[in-house]
Design a protein around this nucleic acid. Structure first.
Lengths: 201, 201
DNA sequence: ATTCAATATGACAACCCTGTCATATGACAA
DNA sequence: TTGTCATATGACAGGGTTGTCATATTGAAT
C-alpha cells in the first residue's frame, strides 16, 4: 500500500522504483535489504522514498503484488492441461511452467527464493498467506485417490508437503544447474520415485 | 582457529564465551549475528574479543568445531544398528538419533538450521565441507541395490538428495511440531512413500 | 619490591542503517 | 504576478555495527 504520492507518479518513474526494489530484494533477503540501496539505484531522494512508502515492508509488499500481477498475466496465457490429467502430469506441468517463468524472469524468481530463506516475522506472515496453491495441489491428490490412481491410505498433506519441499529445493539450483531440460528430467525422476517408490517389487 | 590468548584461558571462561556464541548464533543467522551481543552475553570487553578471535568467522568456526566434538562424543555412545539393516532402517535410525540429539541440545540444532538458512559466502563454503555424511548414505543406497532391495535403475544421488532435503525440512518444524513421536511417525511415513510410492498397484 | 610480558579494557573512528523535518522547488489557479 | 498546494530534497538525530589502539591491569619471575 504505497501512498497517494506514489500512485500519482508517472508510469515510468513507478517502474524505475519498482525495478530498483526488485534489484535489491533479489540480491539480499528482506531483512538485509537496504532502503538506501533502493533509493540510490532508483535515483530518488531519501525524503521522496518516505513520501511514497511507509517503510521497507511497504515497498516490498507493493513489489510482490506487482510481480504477482505480471505472473498472473503470463500464466493466464499458458495453455491449459487436459482436465483429466493425473496428479503427476499436473504437477509436472506446473513445474514446467514455473521453470520457464523462472528462466524468463530470473530476478523475480530470486526474490521468491530469498523469501523462502528469510525467517523474519513479516516474511513469515506473508508466506502464510500464499498457501492457496497448496490446497489446489492437495485437491488433485485427493481426486486421484477417488479415481483409484493413488492409494487410499496415503496421507495427502504429506505428499503435498514433500512435493513442495522438493520443488523449492530444486528451484534453488536453477542457475547453477545447467539446462532447463536437465532440471525437468531431474524433477520428473523425483516424481517417479514418489509415484512408484524405489523398492524392488 | 582462535588465537593463543584464547587457548590460554581457563576452561570455564572458554565455556562462557562458547555459550555466548551458541546463544547468539542460535538466535540469529551468521550474517546477522553480532559480536557486540556475544561480548555482552559473555561479559568480556570488546578488546578482549579481538585478542581471542580474528573476527566473527573465527569464533563461528570454533563454535562449530566444539559442537562437532560434543556431538561425536554423544553419537559414539549410541548403540550401533544391525549391520545388515537396509537403507531405510539405517536412515530411520539416524533420524531417530538426530532427533534425540536435537531435543537434547536444541541450541546446537538451531545453529545448524540457521546455517541451512544462511546464504553468505562463508557459510556456503562451510556447508560444502560437510558432505561426507552424504557419501555414506549414498553407499547404503548402493549396497541395497546390490542386494536387490532397491531397483537398479534408481539414481542413488537423487535418492540421497531427496532424503536429505526432506530430512532438513522436517527438522525445521521440530520446535513447532509437538512431540518427538509425531515427528518420527511423519518421517517414517515419508520414507514409506519413497520406498513404495504412492501409486496404486 | 621491581620489572616485564601477557592480557584486559573501553574510547574511538569509520562505516552502515532508518525515519523525520524544515526548507526548496515545482506547477497550477486566481 | 502572486498565492497555494503537492512534491522533492538532503541534513540531521539516533541507533546499530566492526576493528583498532593507547593505556591500564595482572601475574609471575627475578
Amino acid at each position: 500500500m504505497p501512498k497517494d504520492t506514489f500512485n500519482n507518479l508517472s508510469a515510468e518513474k513507478k517502474r524505475i522504483i519498482f525495478d530498483a526494489a526488485v534489484q535489491e530484494f533479489s540480491t539480499r533477503r528482506f531483512s538485509e535489504a537496504s532502503i538506501n540501496q533502493i533509493i540510490k539505484t532508483a535515483g530518488i531522494s531519501r525524503g521522496s522514498f518516505y513520501q511514497y512508502f511507509n517503510d521497507k515492508e511497504d515497498i516490498y509488499l507493493y513489489m510482490i503484488m506487482e510481480i504477482g500481477k505480471e505472473k498472473l498475466e503470463v500464466l493466464s496465457h499458458t495453455e491449459a492441461l487436459n482436465p483429466d490429467a493425473d496428479f503427476f502430469e499436473n504437477f509436472l506441468h506446473m513445474t514446467r511452467v514455473a521453470l520457464t517463468w523462472a528462466k524468463t524472469k530470473p530476478d523475480y524468481n530470486q526474490v521468491g527464493l530469498l523469501m523462502e530463506l528469510d525467517d523474519s516475522e513479516f516474511i513469515a506472515k506473508l508466506r502464510a498467506l500464499s498457501t492457496e496453491g497448496l490446497a489446489i495441489i492437495k485437491g488433485m491428490v485427493e481426486r486421484d485417490k477417488q479415481r483409484g490412481l493413488i492409494r487410499q491410505e496415503i496421507n495427502s498433506d504429506l505428499v503435498v508437503e514433500m512435493m513442495y519441499t522438493l520443488n523449492i529445493n530444486l528451484l534453488k539450483d536453477i542457475y547453477r544447474n545447467g539446462s532447463e531440460e536437465e532440471m525437468l528430467k531431474k524433477m520428473a525422476d523425483m516424481y517417479d520415485i514418489i509415484k512408484g517408490g524405489i523398492a524392488r517389487v
